[in-house]
Design a protein around this nucleic acid. Structure first.
Lengths: 119, 119
DNA sequence: CCGTATCCGATCCGATACTG
DNA sequence: CAGTATCGGATCGGATACGG
């Protein structure tokens, strides 16, 4: 996700910052501080190596996260939120709350599982 | 954007709610109350009729907005945020602030225009 | 004024294999 | 452990035309 040259609207830019299936989840996982690549792989269910690396790189390119590499073997890299990322975390936390409310409340858990009557 | 049957993570669901190029912008445009379809078309630069209708329908299906149709000609329909939409607006407002900060600050306005030296 | 349908290129994302 | 490359199906979104 390269940012475009021009944006006519701040929200278009901001939405591009978190575009992609995993970006908000990555930001949320970094809420308590740094995480290595392998920790993120373990904590984020269902993500592939390719997707995680790609989204990490993009988040870095737009300045929401940064990383620190430690020399030597085994390789070790820590990813962490920048101040901009911390600000984005505020929005992500709200999204998290909204997601929980949808998963919790009857009205939409019924809808979210498409009237499953079995199990 | 139909919601899936199951989500392993609230953020995956929440991100789906605002997935798509225009959803956050539509929510933001409804921040001060109801808007007719044609008002939204006028206010949201660059959007096509198809995209606006499609995103309005999807936002409605997931319960972030609702609409009220008035009988008679010319047709008139008002769209407005539901309580869930108002909650989502809190996140969108933060995104808006972040977008503004990116467009404003030197570091990223330079980056956002990809080192353009002409014009 | 509001809503639907279709076509088609662009992008996204998962699987998989390979490198330092 | 961390990162790169490629391929192919699925989805997204713009243009355009048509309908109530």
């Amino acid at each position: 996700m390269k940012l475009r040259k021009h944006y006519t609207c701040p929200l278009e830019l901001a939405h591009d910052l978190i575009k992609g299936k995993w970006k908000t989840i990555i930001i949320f996982q970094l809420r308590h501080g740094k995480r290595s690549f392998s920790e993120l792989m373990r904590e984020i269910k269902g993500i592939t190596q390719k997707m995680l690396l790609e989204h990490l790189r993009e988040l870095r390119e737009v300045g929401l996260i940064d990383k620190k590499s430690y020399p030597g073997y085994p390789l070790k890299v820590d990813y962490f939120l920048t101040p901009r990322g911390e600000k984005m975390l505020e929005a992500v936390n709200i999204l998290q709350d909204i997601g929980i409310s949808y998963l919790t409340e009857q009205e939409f858990s019924g809808f979210a599982v498409e009237k499953r009557t079995e199990d």
